[in-house]
Simulated scan of single mutants.
Amino acid sequence: MVKSSFRLKDGEIPSIGLGTWQLEGKKGLDAIVHAIRGGYKMIDCAFSYWNQELVGRAIKESGVPRSELFIVDKLANTWHTAAEDCLDETLKNLDVDSLDLWLMHWPSSLNHNGNDRKCPRLADDSVDYEKDWDYLKTWETMVEIQRRRPHEVKRIGVANFGIKELERIIQTGVVPEVNQVELHPECNQKLLNEYCDKKGILLVGYSPLGSIGSPLLKNSKLEAIAAKNNASVAQCLLSWGIQSGWPVIPRSSSPERIDQNITLIQLSEDDFRRITEIGAESPKRYINAPWYTFDDH
């Protein structure tokens, strides 16, 4: 039986959620409504996806009570120096009174008043970082906000953090509950997973299928494992993630794939090992950003 949730310090987080990146227009709205009505409890959002109002509308149209959902959102890179304003805008846009989990999207503070809302640039085309600011200040601000507004921000965490960044913020005395990072067989983050496990930080896997155009989905060895289990390759990859010890947040706008992705299987020890080995044959990170360089291990 595939586990349905993972323990947090004061509750649980669902094992599978719906990623909302690039879900737009009627197709995106319908996809989110379909997912919530079909049993998805975790909805993974971000200020910088620029679709919070659409997500909020979908939550309302689904008819599922807010109390039954686990809503995640993320502080945008260009709002590190205005974190509380970002939170207020997020709650307003989503039309909800609380977030179950609020993450720092990246350990990268970009100019809040720059020339682009996502990645402002200087005249020489280099990334325009916020001067005299540090993500450590951002974390301290998030901690302070959560302490003042615990009913609106139930938990805080981070995303795209490596060990060196986690070491710094842990020294503040407040350990993030979650670190959301790219996780799939080709990017299994072994050392980061071991570190987070020791520190009591739960990894959550985004791009659990290897992102758009992933060759994993057409890997002949994985196709054989999927056929043996009467499942799709995607179902096997998502099941692998959960059995590895973390929640997964696939994204799709297809009702058929949305339904398929939440119907997972229990992999045998042998199939689990083989999927791990297949991923190790071609290690690859799909998600990179101009404002951050990953320190891969």
Results as ranks from 00 to 15, higher is better:
99 L>K: 12
132 D>R: 07
24 E>F: 11
172 T>L: 01
255 P>S: 06
13 I>Q: 12
13 I>M: 09
30 D>A: 01
161 F>E: 07
53 E>R: 13
245 G>L: 03
267 L>R: 02
77 N>Y: 09
82 A>M: 13
27 K>I: 08
50 W>G: 03
217 L>P: 08
11 G>N: 09
25 G>W: 05
156 I>Y: 10
218 K>S: 15
282 S>L: 04
173 G>I: 01
95 D>R: 09
5 S>R: 12
263 T>Q: 08
129 Y>Q: 06
15 S>G: 13
86 C>Y: 00
295 D>T: 06
245 G>S: 11
290 P>A: 15
157 G>C: 03
97 D>T: 10
268 S>L: 04
173 G>F: 00
78 T>Q: 13
166 L>K: 11
230 N>V: 13
52 Q>R: 04
66 R>S: 07
28 G>D: 12
234 A>E: 13
243 Q>K: 00
17 G>L: 02
218 K>R: 15
126 S>G: 10
68 E>L: 04
218 K>A: 14
206 Y>T: 02
285 R>L: 12
140 E>I: 15
227 A>C: 11
198 K>R: 09
214 S>L: 13
183 L>Y: 11
112 H>A: 14
200 G>H: 01
40 Y>N: 12
124 D>T: 11
180 Q>W: 03
192 L>Y: 03
68 E>Y: 05
76 A>P: 04
177 E>D: 02
71 I>D: 02
27 K>R: 06
1 M>Y: 00
29 L>E: 00
129 Y>V: 10
